[in-house]
Design a protein around this nucleic acid. Structure first.
Lengths: 341, 341
DNA sequence: CTGAAAGCGCTAACAA
DNA sequence: TTGTTAGCGCTTTCAG
């Protein structure tokens, strides 16, 4: 009720003095270790709360050689994909008493190197790397001081690396099967630039689903372009130049899908009556604002983040994990494929 | 060339041993403090790099009572508004050698309290609070251990608090003046829910700009509703029920603006020929995908984050700042108001 | 110009 | 059952 709380918080020694015991005793009392008389324990506890004592993690970390801290290095400038991942990650780590350092490298290797340096200085227990796209990236400066690392929504060249990614192929197959199950026969695919690995995988999924259903694959129904609404509108125009336009379209992302919907509306084509459309990303501001609302594939990025947290905790615990893990996507049905979802 | 780099990084003592000097000397050599012979200094430096030595920030922090660490507590679940703020903040802090702990409280006071506790344990040097909306919030558990704190895009009741916000009123006035300068005479305002402080301020800015131009204020031209595209479409329908529809609309955000554009297109009204529209937020995925691309007000959230970083650094340095600071918005002209921007 | 030693706040092994 | 002490890795007097 009188110690300096403002400038420097009370130390364990202050608590011990206040309770009239030794330093070691106070430590034992608060760490429920050793054997102490209940009365002593209580007295120390009381002093601790009276003084507003909070153990200094820095000192603990220094002692035990573990900081309960991990660094997250993002190359998405904290963008749309990183956010839900961060959220999941943070929630799992926080639950385990681990705090998260946030760094933004923006695909600049020099910045990344500086961040890693800083984090190593802070003696983080592990690293998480996140990307703007799920493609393979050059190894990050390599020297992580032997600390565990996990790559989420991003891939690494390093042989022992652990990568966590959404199952793009499965997601696209999911969308395609959904349309097939609704009786659609001519399903087109309008996607992003082919130099994205995700684009290639999604196309593979689309093709695999068609093949599995015994449907022919018409190359005239597959188009690649930028990830924009404008491209969606343009692609739609092209598709309707065909002698047999499609009765369904699997879009590579939600923005393209919106462009497609826009084009369909402009032409007076009924959705989903004449043409059904699926998006990809399940970016709610897009899917729910679209008219009609857009059926989309959710990559479950928050779950990806949570899983990353759990795996990293295991690695910090000593397990050594590596390889590439792909987590399943989910289909979220809305009115662009089903009249009354 | 042989010390354990993997499990436990080399310590200053290792460096000293390797260079054949005492611990204190090694410290001086690496911290460019005291007076040392150049030769000694170089030798120590060489050993340090040879061993891959990196000072342990935990030990330093423990010693000097400053951790070079701040905590960011977000109530936006790392959402759209928090992202650019974080980016600016992180970049300024990183430049100053300060690392950023990320916490997500999601408007749950209990979670917030736990996060503050954890951060106090980590001996952060300061706090940043970020909100999902810029309204006043209840004080966060109050006890920040006397550490400096700054509220960005969020307000606090605490008397000594420092709050950093965008100038909503000025932003709306900017949009209105822009339309006036283009010769528009009947300018409507379609915005979000009135219980948002930002909505009230933007409306004030709209009204002030009209008054300053000597234009009458027609209550029939002002509408409030949800922050959605659907509301934008509905509001447009209402406006066109009037005997004299507007020739320009200041929207409360970009989504509403898109709804308005959509409605205008549906009616075959030329934009900006017959009606010009401005958005608010300058959310690029919205503004640039709109057709025509949307003129919008940018709240400069990244700059807000940067400024928050600078101010917090000053507070950590001992200055005591408080009050509410509003940073100016900017108008980004696009084709929804100007034919060839 | 360099070395020795105290101490930041805490834990754990060892004494009492 | 409780107290004493030696560090964790670093900086900073103060001696030498």
């Amino acid at each position: 009720m009188s110690r300096p709380t403002a400038l420097s918080p009370p130390t364990l020694r202050d608590v011990a003095r206040h309770a009239g015991v030794s330093l070691g005793t106070a430590s034992k009392a608060l760490n429920r270790s050793g054997t102490l008389r209940q009365e002593t324990r209580d007295r120390v506890r009381a002093s601790a709360t009276a003084l507003g004592f909070r153990p200094n993690d820095l000192a603990q970390a220094l002692h035990r050689g573990q900081s309960f801290t991990v660094g997250l290095i993002s190359n998405d400038s904290f963008g749309r994909f990183t956010m839900p991942i961060m959220e999941g990650l943070e929630s799992v780590l926080h639950e385990a008493g681990i705090a998260l350092f946030m760094c933004n490298a923006t695909d600049d290797p020099a910045r990344e190197r500086k961040h890693i340096d800083q984090l190593l200085g802070k003696r983080v227990d592990g690293f998480v790397f996140t990307g703007r796209r799920a493609d393979r990236r050059p190894a990050p400066g390599l020297d992580l001081g032997g600390l565990p690392a996990i790559h989420v929504f991003s891939r690494s060249d390093l042989p022992g690396a652990l990568c966590l990614l959404p199952d793009d192929e499965g997601g696209a197959a999911l969308a395609t099967r959904h349309l097939l199950s609704l009786g659609r026969r001519r399903i087109a695919h309008v996607s992003g630039p082919e130099d994205f690995e995700a684009v290639r995988l999604r196309r593979l999924g689309y093709e695999a689903a068609l093949a599995a259903a015994g449907r022919p694959l018409d190359p005239a129904l597959v188009h690649h372009g930028p990830w924009t609404e404008a491209w969606g509108r343009e692609a739609l125009a092209r598709l309707f130049l065909l002698p047999h336009p499609p009765d369904a379209i699997v879009a590579g992302n939600d923005q393209i899908a919106r462009g497609l919907l826009d084009g369909l509306r402009g032409r007076g084509v009924a959705v989903p009556g004449e043409v059904a459309v699926t998006g990809f990303d399940n970016w709610t501001v897009m899917t729910e604002a679209a008219s009609p609302p857009l059926t989309s594939i959710d990559m479950n990025l928050r779950a990806l983040g949570e899983q990353a947290g759990r795996l990293l905790i295991r690695m910090i615990g000593g397990e050594s994990l590596s390889g590439t893990i792909r987590l399943p996507c989910t289909l979220v049905p809305r009115a662009s494929t089903i009249p009354n979802p």
